[in-house]
């Protein structure tokens, strides 16, 4: 969950994990959390980022999410810049769950 390799410049989104369920979430425009990266708000506006951060910290303090951090977003694609974050957004490229009957 290191933020170190994110440049923190250009478009940013805010991500975390749900505390109870553990799944990855991204902050949406109405400052709630979505498990779907497509819903993620992306911004370069420092004021908006400040509000996002405040909301993220509050939700972390309220034990809703853990490990809140900003990620760089590629302006061209709208996808996370870092390879690892792309995977967090996309989900596993293979999951045996998909082969389990009834799943």
């Amino acid at each position: 969950m290191s933020t170190l390799k994110h440049k923190g410049k250009g478009p940013q989104s805010l991500t975390a994990n749900e505390l109870r369920e553990g799944l990855n979430v991204w902050m949406t425009e109405d400052l709630t959390w979505s498990r779907d990266f497509k819903d993620a708000m992306t911004t370069e506006d420092p004021d908006v980022m400040e509000r996002m951060k405040h909301r993220g910290d509050t939700d972390e303090a309220d034990n809703l999410v853990v490990g809140v951090y900003f990620i760089d977003i590629e302006p061209e694609t709208g996808l996370p810049a870092r390879y690892r974050e792309k995977f967090r957004a996309k989900g596993p490229s293979i999951d045996t769950a998909d082969l389990v009957e009834g799943s």
């Binding site: 505390l19 109870r20 369920e21 553990g22 999951d95 045996t96 769950a97 082969l99 389990v100 009957e101 009834g102 799943s103």
Partner: peptide, 21 residues
Amino acid sequence: DKGYGHITTRQNIQYNWPELI
């Protein structure tokens, strides 16, 4: 979990999707 497990190189088994609760 999601109906499967993963055997590790230390002979253990892992579940990839449990919820903390």
